[in-house]
């Protein structure tokens, strides 16, 4: 059998570990909303306490065929395939920003359906492939 001291230390450690897991879980639970880097258009739609004077981030996909670029501003629609929000933006966009790709916009809500961004970040997906393969894939889709 194991010596008494070893048993004592093992049980002490088990209690300590359980307590810290519980602690971390509680912290994460209370922080839950703040951990989210961005809200989806659906989150905005169902949210009760919207603050129109605070900066927030909205993320989703840039809806296809909605991107309008003219001299002064860029307009597009962010969608999570359930709900949508129109975004207008003045400034430079990252290289990877494109229709049908992920995007995170930072700025202020004007109302539940309209968002004025002052910063645009591109959200990259987890697919990596060489360009030739991408061409073959898109040919197959056609």
């Amino acid at each position: 059998m194991l010596p008494k001291k070893v048993k004592k230390r093992a049980s002490l450690l088990a209690i300590f570990l359980l307590a810290s897991i519980l602690g971390v879980f509680l912290i994460l639970n209370t922080l839950n909303k703040n951990i989210l880097y961005f809200n989806s258009p659906t989150d905005i739609k169902i949210s009760q306490d919207l603050n129109y004077n605070k900066k927030i981030r909205i993320g989703g996909m840039v809806k296809k065929n909605t991107l309008e670029i003219n001299n002064q501003e860029i307009k597009f629609i962010i969608t999570d395939f359930k709900n949508e929000i129109s975004v207008s933006f003045k400034g430079t966009i990252p290289n990877l920003f494109a229709e049908g790709k992920g995007v995170v916009a930072e700025g202020m809500l004007k109302d539940k359906r309209f968002f004025e961004a002052d910063r645009i970040l591109a959200k990259h997906d987890e697919n990596y492939m060489p360009p030739e393969l991408k061409n073959i894939l898109s040919d197959n889709v056609k």
Binding site: Y37, N39, S40, K123, E126, N127, Y128, M129, L133
Partner: peptide
């Protein structure tokens, strides 16, 4: 678990990886 700017893992322990073999 959460909405992050960082993309999900491309290489999975089980299932297919979303990264091409040449990479």
């Amino acid at each position: 678990w959460w909405a992050t700017l960082h993309q999900p893992a491309s290489i999975k322990i089980s299932g297919t990886s979303s990264i091409h073999s040449s990479m």
